[in-house]
Write a protein that binds this DNA or RNA. Sequence first.
DNA 1: TATAATCAAATTGTCGACAATAGCTATTGA
DNA 2: TCAATAGCTATTGTCGACAATTTGATTATA
Lengths: 227, 227
Amino acid sequence: MSDLGFATDAASRTSADRVFEALQDAIVRGDIAPGSRIGETELAERFGTSRGPLREALRRLESRRLVERTPHVGVRIAALDYATLIELYYLREALEGMAAHLAALHMTADEVISLKTLLAAHEQDEALQADTAYFQQEGDLDFHYRIIQGSHNGALSQLLIGELYHRIRMYRYQFSAYANRPQKAFAEHQRIVEAIEARDGDFAEMLMRRHISSARQNIERRLKETS
Amino acid sequence: MSDLGFATDAASRTSADRVFEALQDAIVRGDIAPGSRIGETELAERFGTSRGPLREALRRLESRRLVERTPHVGVRIAALDYATLIELYYLREALEGMAAHLAALHMTADEVISLKTLLAAHEQDEALQADTAYFQQEGDLDFHYRIIQGSHNGALSQLLIGELYHRIRMYRYQFSAYANRPQKAFAEHQRIVEAIEARDGDFAEMLMRRHISSARQNIERRLKETS
DNA sequence: TATAATCAAATTGTCGACAATAGCTATTGA
DNA sequence: TCAATAGCTATTGTCGACAATTTGATTATA
């Protein structure tokens, strides 16, 4: 998937760009333990470059809050905690609510058809695999990506997909069991698409906000049960 | 004002951090023309450092979209256009609406009092200076900062204050005459504070969204008139 | 004259070395 | 035995030099 807003021409990709993407992926997937501290020399060797480009990559990852920096001490891989996850859900509720609203107003007919096709595919797959979490999660992201892109608001897309979603995915990879119930989420997806198809911006926004809000409440509920 | 999320200990500030802040300030204030291209060597000399730290600073500014980078070509100061400004207002509407909602729920009594004091000071100053745009703009930002901080949502504050607001300020400095009418905006501010004081999250959110939305519409209206 | 290929200059990308700082260890004193 | 200090080690911060690439200018050719 394209990482909006940065040049990714395969040909003229610079070493700093490559290590940025590779390191980001390693962090998001959990190949490097959250909260751990790794030296620049070690990282540079691991990614086959020198400390110069590596430090440039670290600065960008710092901006995305995937690493935390302390001057003269070093960088630490971002730690994951539930409080921050909850905060991110409020951000998603606001931003994706707006995205759904704008998508209802600005999506092209083709984009709506493509979105419905995606949902039909999900329905097929769900019918077969009942409650498989992984597909649902990736499929869920796919669905949300489409809505965001459908807003036709570049700043909004860049913010959500280019910066926020990496942190979301990091939590998904490493806090495995927190997804909303697949069938419930799927039904909510369907209603959102209906509202978009009806070009009802306010309703689409409301449905999207409730969709994300209920996911957040689901996490908060589990959090109380297990503590 | 603090630039949330990054170490700013005056003592151990690194050269890369200093040039980052200085260069960001120069860009936001328009000391360097938007859309212009400046070489790394020239920038490094201007800020009294070498290209290493400068490039780290540029990477962070790239993440904030204050500069645009083309591999092997160089960086260009972000260009300003009305389409992007409008997009940013939709972001503000969504995010600051959420901030107002959360502020109504989570602001401490002291914070509410302090916010009311700020507004009283604005009223005084407005009574004296009628329609002075500059103070109003800075005062306006002050007001919005307080609400955002009052949300007590770290991720939201970091996103708005730490990343988005620099672009907003850049537009304010350089697209001078686009502010909402001061007295109308002030009245809206008062209503928002009333809703926060009444702990009415939904209403505070609605008022904030209308406040920002009408500012956006005001810009769009002027845009049509002059074109 | 227009177009394409070639070359040169300037700029960016990368690297290794050195300087500066923080944190740890050992030593000294009470 | 504990605390404080001094020194050492490892890591980060900074710099200058070199390599790679782009861009434009120039020249040759149709």
